[in-house]
């Protein structure tokens, strides 16, 4: 397994939207490096033809009957919103296309 570079740490931090200062990034680099190093043993395990286990207990997806229940009151839905304008949630301007 490749070892972790500082650049990768920064890329991951951006992907995960985590701001960290220089010192935190440096610490992260060495701690994650040590953890990944410790985990490198898994690469040698032969898992050919072993289906990945996504759920601990095998069950099928239950399906919900299509009935609409009353929604939360907008007041309850919005009570915890840090910044809003009437019933709308306010965020800094979305630069076109910074998401999907």
């Amino acid at each position: 397994m490749p070892s972790l570079t500082r650049k990768e740490v920064e890329e991951i931090a951006l992907l995960a939207r985590l701001h960290m200062d220089e010192a935190a990034l440096a610490r992260m680099e060495s701690e994650l490096g040590a953890i990944l190093e410790h985990f490198s043993s898994i690469a040698a395990v032969d898992t050919t033809d072993i289906p990945p286990m996504t759920h601990a207990v095998p069950i099928e997806l239950p399906l919900r009957v299509d009935v609409a229940f009353p929604s939360l009151d907008a007041a309850d839905a919005l009570r915890a919103v840090p910044k809003r304008d009437g019933d709308l949630i306010v965020v800094p301007a979305i630069i076109a296309g910074s998401g999907e």
């Binding site: 898994i42 690469a43 072993i50 289906p51 990945p52 996504t54």
Partner: peptide, 12 residues
Amino acid sequence: AYYKKAQQIRAL
């Protein structure tokens, strides 16, 4: 190499 492998080990 990581997530899928770990889930396979989980099966083991």
